[in-house]
C-alpha cells in the first residue's frame, strides 16, 4: 500500500503570534515494502511530517493518500489508516501504562476489537518479533531495562499488525547493544514480513545500515533525496546541514583527499574493507 504525500504544508498555531511553519510543500511517495530513511537536523520537520502518515495531524495544505484513500475524506478512512500505519514515537517507552507487559501490548489489539484468543496470540507473536520471551508477560513494564521497555512499546504497535511501520528515532538514548538489537529486529521485520519501514533518525550510522533510500529535510523542506549511497556521497551538503555522514563514508573521503582512488559510495565497515583492499591490490598490481 503506497503512501503519497502531495504538497504537504503544516503550520503550528496558525493565526497566532507563535505561528510556525513546520513542514513546507513536501511531496514524497513511499513505495510498498521499501525501507525509507528520513534524516535532517533538529527542528527540520521530520516528526511533524510523519505524524501526517496516520492522520494524527491534518495538513494545513496538500494531502496524504494512503492506499488510494485521501485521509481527509472521512473518519472511517482515518480509523482504517491507523490500523495500517503503525507509528512509533521517540522514546516510546514513555507511553507504557499498564500493570503488566501483556496488558500493555494487548492495548492496541483490544482497541481493534479482537477476541481474547487472537489478542493473546498477537501479543506473544509481537513480543517474539522484538526478541522478548514469554517470561516477561506478567512483569511490570516499569521494572524492565530501558532497551527492553522500548522493545515492549514497539511490540505494542506491532501487535496491531500494521503494513507500514514508521519509527521516530528508535535508537535514541540506547547503548550500542540496545541499538544493535533494535536495528536487527527492524531489519528482520522488513526482510521477513515485507513491512514497509520509514525510519526517522539523525544517526547517520543507523540509516546507512538500514535504509535503501534517503530523504534529507531541512527547515521543513526536502533538500536532498536519492539512494542512500547517492545522498551520503554529497558530504559537503550534508555537513552544511550539520549532519555527519557515516564514519566509513568520511573515512573514504579522507582517503580520497590523500590521493587514493577509492569510491565514496561506501556505507559499512565491510564495504570499506573491500574497497580499501581493492584499491591497495590495484596499487600493488601496478
Amino acid at each position: 500500500m503506497p503512501i503519497l504525500i502531495e504538497g504537504l504544508t503544516y503550520v503550528y498555531a496558525a493565526g497566532t503570534p507563535l505561528e510556525a511553519r513546520a513542514v513546507s510543500d513536501v511531496t514524497l511517495s513511499i513505495e510498498d515494502g521499501e525501507l525509507l530513511g528520513i534524516i535532517g537536523p533538529t527542528g527540520s520537520g521530520k516528526t511533524t511530517l510523519i505524524q501526517h502518515l496516520n492522520g494524527l495531524l491534518r495538513p494545513t495544505q496538500g494531502r496524504v493518500v494512503v492506499d488510494g484513500v485521501d485521509l481527509a475524506s472521512s473518519r472511517e478512512a482515518l480509523r482504517a489508516v491507523r490500523r495500517k500505519v503503525g507509528l512509533i514515537f521517540q522514546y516510546p517507552e514513555q507511553q507504557l501504562f499498564e500493570e503488566t507487559v501483556f496488558e500493555d501490548v494487548a492495548f492496541g489489539p483490544r482497541n481493534l476489537g479482537l477476541g481474547e484468543a487472537e489478542v493473546e496470540a498477537r501479543v506473544k507473536e509481537a513480543l517474539g518479533q522484538v526478541g522478548l520471551g514469554h517470561e516477561l508477560l506478567k512483569r511490570s513494564p516499569f521494572e524492565l531495562s530501558g532497551g527492553q521497555m522500548r522493545r515492549v512499546a514497539i511490540a505494542g504497535v506491532l501487535a496491531m499488525k500494521p503494513k507500514v511501520l514508521v519509527l521516530d528515532e528508535p535508537t535514541a538514548g540506547l547503548d550500542p547493544r540496545g541499538r544493535a538489537e533494535i536495528l536487527g529486529h527492524l531489519e528482520a521485520l522488513h526482510g521477513r514480513l515485507g513491512l514497509t519501514v520509514v525510519l526517522v533518525s539523525h544517526s547517520m550510522r543507523d540509516v546507512a545500515r538500514l535504509a535503501r533510500r534517503l530523504v534529507v529535510m531541512d527547515r521543513g523542506r526536502i533538500v536532498l533525496s536519492g539512494t542512500t549511497r547517492e545522498v551520503f556521497s554529497r558530504a559537503e551538503e550534508l555537513e552544511r546541514l550539520g549532519l555527519k555522514p557515516p564514519p566509513m563514508t568520511s573515512l573514504m573521503r579522507r582517503l580520497r583527499d590523500r590521493g587514493r582512488p577509492v569510491s565514496l559510495g561506501v556505507l559499512t565497515v565491510e564495504e570499506a574493507r573491500r574497497e580499501i583492499l581493492r584499491v591497495v591490490r590495484g596499487e600493488r598490481g601496478n
Binding site: L56, G86, L87, F89, P92, Q94, Q95, N111, L112
Partner: peptide, 16 residues
Amino acid sequence: EEADKIMKAQMARGAD
C-alpha cells in the same frame, strides 16, 4: 507538550 505526545502515541494504538 508531553500530554500531547502521549495522547498521539495512544491514538496511534487505537485509543479513542
